[in-house]
């Protein structure tokens, strides 16, 4: 279980300290503590890449990745065989002097994550959309791995 660092925040009044403390307690049970800060909901510790979901049905494999506040051109998607690789860089929007920050929890920098897909897909038919900060990739399965219905004839 990860240890929580207690941070002294002199500029916060007791009321907000209490509400943050309650949230810190909740995080004891939230196993996804990020090395970059308290929040870190998008970058996953250990993999250095975005949180992902993988879904499948008979027709498609779908991968969703949490990448809030990014530009499409800073995200790179590639596929080799049944391994999908997401690469990119999360950049800070503008040059802001550090002393003007009260709090920095958002993480920045390059990331790379390779994901083994549950089935081979048709690489040239992948559709990727970026919406509400979620990158969604819909990948049609190769015809040979789609389930086929076999009729049983009774003699």
């Amino acid at each position: 279980m990860a240890l929580i660092r207690y941070r002294h925040r002199p500029d916060w009044d007791p009321f907000s300290w209490l509400s943050d403390f309650r949230q810190d307690l909740t995080r004891v049970f939230d196993s996804r503590l990020s090395p970059w800060g308290e929040g870190g909901t998008d970058l996953l510790e250990g993999t250095g890449g975005p949180r992902i979901d993988i879904y499948e049905d008979d027709e498609n494999v779908v991968v969703n990745a949490d990448l809030p506040g990014m530009k499409k051109e800073d995200i790179d998607i590639s596929i080799t065989g049944d391994v999908l690789t997401l690469k990119g860089e999360k950049k800070q929007e503008e040059e802001v002097k550090e002393e003007n920050y009260h709090r920095i929890e958002r993480s920045y920098g390059s990331f790379q994550r390779s994901i083994t897909l549950p089935a081979p897909v048709e690489a040239d038919k992948i559709k990727a959309t970026y919406r509400d900060g979620v990158l969604e990739m819909v990948m049609p399965k190769r015809p040979e791995v789609k389930p086929k219905k076999i009729d049983v004839t009774v003699k």
Binding site: T26, T41, N100, H102, R106, D132
Partner: peptide, 26 residues
């Protein structure tokens, strides 16, 4: 499930700017 989003808070001469990451929220 309630999750605390991560935020940046910075202060300029004229305003305070807060950024919160809320992936998947429309």
């Amino acid at each position: 499930r309630v999750i605390t989003p991560c935020v940046n808070i910075r202060e300029g001469e004229d305003d305070v700017i807060l950024e919160a990451e809320l992936p998947g929220v429309s």
